[in-house]
Design a protein around this nucleic acid. Sequence first.
DNA 1: GAGTGGTCTAGACCACAAT
DNA 2: TTGTGGTCTAGACCACTCC
Lengths: 236, 236
Amino acid sequence: MIAPPSATPVFQTIKDFLLREIQAGTWKEGDAIPSEAALAQQFNVSRMTVNRAVRELTSEQILNRIQGSGTYVAQQKYQATLVAIKSIADEIRSRGHAHRSELHELIEVEASESLAQQFQVEPGYRLFHSVIVHFENEIAIQVEDRWVNSALAQDYLSQDFASITPNEYLVAVAPLQGVDYSIEAVMPPKHIADMLHISNKEVCLVLHRKTRSQNQIATIVTMWHPGARYQFTGSF
Amino acid sequence: MIAPPSATPVFQTIKDFLLREIQAGTWKEGDAIPSEAALAQQFNVSRMTVNRAVRELTSEQILNRIQGSGTYVAQQKYQATLVAIKSIADEIRSRGHAHRSELHELIEVEASESLAQQFQVEPGYRLFHSVIVHFENEIAIQVEDRWVNSALAQDYLSQDFASITPNEYLVAVAPLQGVDYSIEAVMPPKHIADMLHISNKEVCLVLHRKTRSQNQIATIVTMWHPGARYQFTGSF
DNA sequence: GAGTGGTCTAGACCACAAT
DNA sequence: TTGTGGTCTAGACCACTCC
């Protein structure tokens, strides 16, 4: 049989059908849905077409498949809110505002006991340390305190961080493997408060992030934002 | 030709090949990669197999495809850090701790001017309002202040929020369409501080979330967490 | 052994872009 | 008109689960 011209592809029709039935409760979490063969017969299409529909729903975590056993409705997992945090320069630019950064420190250091532990290296290991303050329309909005694994970004010290952010440079040289992060609300130490031009009685919104690349810890960043004039926002 | 038994599927081999070449810089951002036909010939496989490899990389945002034109290397992945925020009950349970919640309010109200605006409805529209305090090992860790669109969750008032969280109920009745959120660090109003058993001099980490479902605003939540004992964490 | 999913083929027709 | 991707077929063999 030849594929008929149609507004929506058949595999999409099947996906929609399955989603609708799951939503309607025909099959509940953990239930098996009909086999590929059964669906192929029901829709009068080839098994490959059904396979694509079901495979895509599986990659979307709507279904689980077990070879030799069957296809099952996955557990609802919408309990999580995904928050995307963009790089500060992108964010400011996308608001149409002016971004400027001030380099406060850019040095090579030997890892202290505690840093070495966080980077999973020996004390004395070479690290780079940078401290940059980001301004939005000349108002300080982020202090970026960053430690960088020297092995993954040899040229870190010679970058011009007025024109490129550390993020942009690091993304280019060290493809991201994984990220650990935490967000907290804390009072800033005095030197951070000073750089943000706020009092150290004002709370900060802080993002900690540790990235892995090439099976090493690539960089550990702490980003301080004045709580009074900054929040993480976004949508999906 | 018959598919040979092999450790890794052919389409995966092709995906790996493409990823490696992109990583190596053979094709840079925006460059066209070889056509399906060319890859099929190069790997001596059918076009459908190549198609699957390329289609999956496209859904992973590694490639862009333009019908009639070609397949191109997508722009570098985001600088964005993705943060997943789980429901508080899940999170506490996954730490192996005891979760308990206290229902402080569960009523029907008519939307005020400002609420009506946020929900994009007329003032006077029926909304539900719940206030729940969540405890981890008997320590208050979240105040969940939630407004719910009555049209999307008619039975909201008759739920037993000791055994099911509002989230769990709402996920079941109103499939999620989209989310807006923001995270900020602020001082709590007194009634929130009281429920968390903290002073109103202690900062809170606050997550605001507005969800859409069936083309309406489904629910608007504000979650207050004591900054001293809570942070959002996770990894990818 | 029967049933399931996992993969692959060698064609086909279509829609669209570039020329 | 040529080349690209988008979709679909009607088979096939395989690995695995379950009985």
